[in-house]
Structures are given as C-alpha cells and as structure tokens.
Amino acid sequence: MTRKCLFGVVIVSLFLCGARSASAATVALLNASYDATREFYRDYNAAFVKYWKAKTGQDVRIEMSHTGSGKEARAVIDGLDADVVSLALAYDIDAIARRTGYLPADWQSRLPNDSSPYSSTIVFLVRKGNPKHIKDWPDLINPGVSVVTPNPKTSGGARWAFLAAWEYALKADGGSEDKARQFVRALYKHVPVLDTGARGSTATFAERGIGDVLLSWENEAYLVINKSAKGQFEIIYPSISIVAQPPVAWLDKNVSRHGTTALAKAYLEYLYSEQGQEIAANHYFRPVKNPTGRYRALPFIKTFTINDAFGGWSSAQKKFFADGGVFDQIYQP
C-alpha cells in the first residue's frame, strides 16, 4: 500500500512542479538570450527590477536562459516558454515567427532602430604584442596564422564574422564575388577548431591557448581583456567591419497567455532609455546614439550594415548559411 501512495505522490509532484509558480506578489519574466549577453543582462535586470518597482509597485523577477543564439531559437520553437527573446541576429527571431507564429512577421518594426537597442561589431583579439602582426583582414590568411571562430551554422557571432570577411574581400581593390569566395575559403583553412558558440571559441582561444587571433564580438573581446591578466591580449580593429545588430522582441502569444504583455514591452523599451543605453555601453555594446559622448565611447571603426551589403538576413542566410550554401561549398574540414 505504501508503495502505491509513494507512486501517487511522485506523479502528483511531477505535475505540480510543471505548473508555473504563480505567486500573486512577484511576476516572472523569462528572457531567452544568447551567450555574449550574460553579464550585460545581469546588470540590466537589476536596474529594470528597481525601475519597475518604483513605477508600478510590482515586484518582478527576470529569469534568463543563455546559450548559442540558434540553439536558443530552437528551444523557443520547441516550447521554451519565454516572454521575450534577445538573440544575436534577426534571422533567429524570424525563424521563431515563421515556425510558430508567436509573433508577427514584421516584428522588427515594432521597436526603434530595427528592434536593436544596441549594436556591436566584429573585431580581432590577438595575443600580447601581436606577434603575428595581424592588422587587417588579409593578414588572417598569412602563412602560419591560426584563426579561431565558431561555426557559422550554429553561432550568430560567427555568421557576422563570415559576412564581414566576405564584404571586405568584395569591396577591396579589384574585389569580386570570386575573390571573396577565394578569401573566405582561405580564411577557413586557417581555422583549426569550429566551436558551436562564441563562448566556446573564446575559451578555446583564451583558456586553452589555441590560435593566434579570435574573430570576436567587440563586447566579448573587452570582456576577455577585463577578465584575464592585464596585457595578455590586445584588440585589433580591422579597416572595415560589419554592424552586428542583436535584436529583441516580445513573443505576443506567450505574453498574452502569461498576462505579461505590458511588462514585456516595458522591459524591452527600457533598453532604449538613458539608463539602459548606459548599461549597454558599460558592457562595451554600442548604444543607438551617443551624441554628446555621454556613454563610454568605443573606438571609431568603418562599418557597413547587413541591409546595405546583403539585402537583409533572409537573403544572406539563404545565400551563405543554408544547406548547400556558400559556407558549405567553401568549407571542407
């Protein structure tokens, strides 16, 4: 008999912990994000919780889920019950919209600046003293240079890096589609390991000591510099790079089910506030506008956008990263 009771208890407890803990006092909001925003959102969430409490008197708890951007999108599609997503690139949120209908296809027009409250770019992180003299994109394919970057199939940062390299070669003197193809082919010949995400690549480069240069998110590169012994690494700004815009969106269907629509919108809109922008700048993201130099200023770098150079993410994804696309054609391990 006791055995039966025990089994009953187990089954009931299984379902109980499945139900969302719905205490009236605190509202929970789940933000599904990517690897390189962990530190930023830790600070931002604390600021938002304080702001929201002062504004509405409501206690809110922000829960975070972080992994590679593509994997995170996949989890949301498979039912990760997120209220908002803040991913590495628009294509991953497009995929959620297309496959689930949780948010409208034109989600990117709902918030300012293509729903990207901060931007970043792709820079080079090299070892102390830059022993291989890496100054710009062509130096990456010099003999004996080993490049670390994640797999563009799974990592958002890696896709930005791939596109930056491509566009550089296309726009260089005498550049052409063929030249660009040759350049990225040569570049990936210099890559000894393709990790699945930005954090994996950073660990490969900084902790395991593999490679001469890491193609990195700018904010991630500064994080490495700050977290490691002084002078161990240097950041190199290439002559041109891409504006990497990590967008944010609320998931209409989920927030209306949770009753968190107003909260989710306020959470994302607050990213554009002075305080949100300042926290982003403190974590080495580039704010939308920095007219008076109010926030931390990062070095100037000549950039291009995905819309100007590639006509947006959908066409870039289809041409370069889909099965049988340019990346599959040029990359042979």
């Binding site: 299984l14 379902f15 499945g18 989890a75 498979d78 039912g79 019950d81």
Partner: peptide, 21 residues
Amino acid sequence: AQGIVGPWLIAHGVKIIFAKP
C-alpha cells in the same frame, strides 16, 4: 511545442519540456 502531445499539454497549462518534469 511542435511535438506529438506537446501542443495539447501546453494548451492545458502543463509544462514538461524546459521545466522540471
């Protein structure tokens, strides 16, 4: 959410995947 019994469970407020169960 794209699974076999998932949509029905989610519609009834039972979360299995991405939760403790």
